[in-house]
Design a binder for these strands. Structure first.
Lengths: 330, 330
DNA sequence: TGCGGTGGAGTAATCGTTTACTCAGAAACT
DNA sequence: AGTTTCTGAGTAAACGATTACTCCACCGCA
């Protein structure tokens, strides 16, 4: 593979001049620039990234470590990050931690070893992984979930309030025995959604009961089983569901139990998905501004890369309830 | 950040010994190994990836360039690739080319510059990007779509046959004016699905008509418009839809036109998705073995990294028709 | 005791860039 | 003209690992 020396030899200049011509850092005789460019093209020269990064002590690459590539919420974040990063010449590598602290650890190690310019992550409950980055002063932004007691730029959705509003909406529509299917304990979004749900019930003077709450991983299978149990033993008349994958499980369980969403059991789920309007009745959802979370996170990260001394900020975005048929008795 | 020299100094040995102790390439006195390990841990030493890659002339990283992160088909492939790569110590970086030759080009450049060990890609119609890799002998596997006239390992689904069988299924169920909504011309999977559709009609002696075919990007919006037009002007009694994003658009158009899937307009779509069973009637789909495509592609790539001289192979996997209510008149 | 062989550790070259430093020549002064 | 300033290009020293090569000490054998 052609190196900078090959280009220099072909253009009849020094490697320093090639480097300067290609990077435009300092002025070079236009005549020489032309010769260098011609030689580089002729040889199909591509700079050696590792060598460049070794010398520069930084790569124009951001790492984005997300919890689940198969969750549309996180892929939308990824798009937001990419779109911003690309406009300023950074590449984004997407790493799928799969809600698994070991995989997350592995990707954090890769990010450190490859000396990426910065990291955006939706952290697992195991804070030690993020601490690895924090201790090295690697620019870091937490997205979707905060890092407790760590001074780190953070982009969140006010998911507790959103859960409260969703629950209040169900109460307003006349549902009284409202259940909640949320994610694992320790995952902040799961905890917050449960808190918001309880906030609404308490404010309305409705007794909350642990028998109406189920916690499981953020996937369809667990949610299906959880919903089936709730339906069998606790006769809820509505369910608040913490994400879209879980929603498919819950809806499947309703179908099996022969219970119609909306009319018989109200359903509100987090995350607006393409199919929400296709089912009958259409699914009422809490739409999170995922793409925007990605763009904001990327901007924060770029700002921190430019100035690691700036104070850490927390940006909280609002979610939006989209009322559809699954939460109406009519 | 701690370097290998720091570790060497603390352990009282040379950098060579540290390297050997850490990589286990050659035998080192267990006593020294212990000292080195202790020092490395104490200093939180993480090897400098760029320096290592520069010297080794290769990184233990695979690049996976996919057409659309928001398409579950591709994220399932990504999981397959990751699962295989991780078992042998490779990391996978996921790049979203977004069906866009420019973005693809950009990621190909990054892959070349970072000297990744190999690349798996679902190529856009612009073959020049893949040629960049081929010309440099970068190990490469094409997935989902072939690279015409290039000797490259390839993993495909027999999508033409699958489209034919799906169409035959619709014919067998008594639908006669079958339309097709497929992807852009030049994208092989889109072309093949159209060909399979025509194969089935011809074999059944049904006249094919361009008025029953629409081509658009592989997304919901275009498909929705296309389906609306077909319904308004060509009165199809069934539709074959080339992927799941398009299926949401088609189903929305059917809803707007007040036409019920199955009973009035039969629908078969490519890709089995979680919500296929939730809609009414449930969606008949062509399930592609996406995860398996990913595992096979990763295995081929690893084999080629180990021996770049091996002959190129093409693996074709079968898709499976899953009959549900949307293709039954009853 | 002397000698070849061997295992294990250190020395230093190397990978391909970027960039601090140097230097020659031209331009702009006095 | 002589001196200073400036511009632009070349020289060579990093960056931090891996590894070919060297060397020392020790072992076994005659």
């Amino acid at each position: 593979m052609a190196t900078i020396s090959d280009v220099a030899a072909m253009a009849g200049v020094s490697t320093a001049t090639v480097s300067r011509a290609l990077n435009g850092k300092s002025t070079v005789d236009p005549e020489l620039v032309a010769r260098v460019l011609a030689a580089a093209k002729e040889l199909g020269y591509q700079p050696n990234g590792p060598a460049r990064n070794l010398r520069r002590q930084e790569a124009a690459v951001l790492a984005l470590i997300i919890s689940d590539v198969e969750n549309p919420f996180f892929t939308a974040i990824a798009r937001g990050v990419e779109d911003v990063a690309h406009t300023v010449g950074y590449s984004v590598v997407l790493c799928n931690a799969d809600e698994n602290a070991d995989k997350e650890r592995r990707y954090v190690d890769v990010a450190i070893q490859e000396r990426v310019a910065g990291v955006i992550m939706s952290p697992t409950p195991d804070v030690r992984n993020a601490d690895l980055l924090i201790n090295r002063n690697t620019p870091l932004v937490a997205v979707d979930r905060p890092l407790p007691d760590r001074l780190v730029d953070t982009v969140l959705v006010d998911t507790r309030l959103a859960a409260r509003q969703a629950t209040e909406h169900l109460l307003a529509k006349g549902y009284t025995r409202i259940g909640c299917v949320t994610g694992p304990s320790g995952v902040r979004t799961a905890d917050d959604r449960l808190s918001g749900y309880r906030d609404a019930l308490r404010a309305a003077g409705v007794r909350t009961s642990p028998r109406l709450v189920r916690r499981t991983e953020f996937r369809a299978a667990g949610a299906r089983k959880a919903a089936a149990e709730l339906l069998a033993h606790s006769s809820p008349d509505a369910l608040l569901v913490a994400n879209s994958a879980m929603a498919t499980g819950v809806l499947a369980a309703l179908g099996e139990a022969g219970r119609r969403p909306g009319r018989e059991v109200g359903v509100v789920a987090f995350d607006d998905v393409a199919w929400a309007e296709l089912i009958d009745p259409p699914l009422t959802v809490v739409a999170q501004p995922a793409y925007e979370m990605g763009t904001v996170a990327a901007q924060l990260l770029l700002a921190r890369i430019a100035d690691n001394g700036r104070a850490a900020t927390t940006t909280t975005l609002a979610a939006r309830l989209i009322e559809r048929g699954s939460s109406h008795r009519g």
